[in-house]
Amino acid sequence: MYVVGGLIIGNPGDTQESIETNLEFARRYVDWPYIQHPTPYPATPMTRQLRERGLITNERMEEYDGTTAVVRSEHLTAEEIEFLRWRKERWMKLRHLPAALARSPWFVLRNGLAMFRHTFRGCSLKSLLGWEDEHLAFARYRALRQAERAYL
Rank of each mutant, 00 (worst) to 15 (best):
W91V: 08
C123R: 13
R95F: 06
A114R: 05
T57M: 14
L23V: 03
W86R: 12
R140Q: 13
G112F: 14
R85I: 09
G10D: 13
I9Q: 08
M61A: 15
A137R: 11
L144Y: 04
I56H: 00
L101S: 03
L125P: 12
E24N: 10
A139M: 08
R90A: 11
R145P: 05
E24G: 05
D65H: 06
P42M: 04
P42C: 00
L76W: 01
Q16M: 07
W91G: 13
E63R: 14
P38D: 04
E89R: 11
K126P: 02
T77Q: 03
E62W: 08
R110C: 11
R87V: 06
E63A: 11
I19P: 02
P105D: 02
A69P: 03
R149N: 01
K88Y: 09
R117I: 04
F25S: 12
L76A: 04
E62V: 15
N58V: 15
A139V: 03
R95S: 05
R27C: 04
R103F: 13
D133H: 15
R48Q: 09
Y141S: 01
G6P: 08
P33Q: 14
E20P: 01
H37C: 11
F138E: 03
V108Y: 14
T47C: 06
R110F: 01
R117T: 09
E148F: 07
Y29R: 15
T119E: 13
T21E: 09
W91A: 12
R110N: 08
A100F: 15
I19M: 08
V30D: 08
G5P: 12
G130K: 10
L23H: 07
W131I: 07
L97H: 08
A147T: 10
P40T: 00
Y151H: 11
T67K: 01
R142P: 11
E62S: 08
V30Y: 01
T21P: 13
A99Y: 14
M92T: 00
A150F: 02
W131A: 02
R72E: 10
A143I: 04
R87L: 15
A150L: 13
L84D: 11
T67M: 06
L7H: 07
C123S: 07
R87H: 14
Y151G: 02
M61D: 14
F25Y: 07
E80V: 12
E52P: 05
R87P: 04
E24L: 04
P45E: 04
P38H: 07
M92R: 01
L55E: 08
L136V: 10
I81Y: 01
R117K: 09
T77R: 03
E24T: 04
G54Q: 06
E24M: 02
H96C: 06
M115V: 09
D133E: 15
R149D: 04
E148C: 06
